[in-house]
Amino acid sequence: MTETLLFYGFGLLSILGALGLILFKHPMNGAMSFVITLISLACLYALLSAKLIFAIQLIVYAGAIMSLILFIIMFLNIGESDLPEERGRWFYLAGGIVAIGPIAILMQRAFKTLPPGETAIVGDGFGGVQEVGMVLFTDWLLPFEIVSILLLVALVGAVVLAGKREVSE
């Protein structure tokens, strides 16, 4: 009972946050509502008893990445006056509906044809440290290592971009 209530609460919060992200005019307010979405997503993971993913979502996304995004917004310091005037807003909206409408109907049809799936409740250890570690280091070892090399490449790239450039004569 409590779980269901909490699920609906956090689900609603995450949707509201996502709406706020695209509807608020000021980038800072948008970023703050994105934080709400990230935190309520983390809470949804916690409800699924995936404590590790909950913690990592908070550390990586709500903590580190959002701090950097907020930093950038603060340094750019965009005010209301800097934003472009949106004249043909309603025109674009109508165009968007016309474009997306058929796709939405198609998707709905496609979902209806899917066979009703059986959902089994996974055990309590799902998403724990040991389980994730076992999966990462046995079944998915190669992709894991490749991703770490990708991160290294990104790191080197950032250092190269940020490094001092010699002024060419």
């Binding site: 908070l58 903590g63 580190a64």
Partner: peptide, 8 residues
Amino acid sequence: AFAALGGM
């Protein structure tokens, strides 16, 4: 995780 939120 909670310390990260506090930093925010």
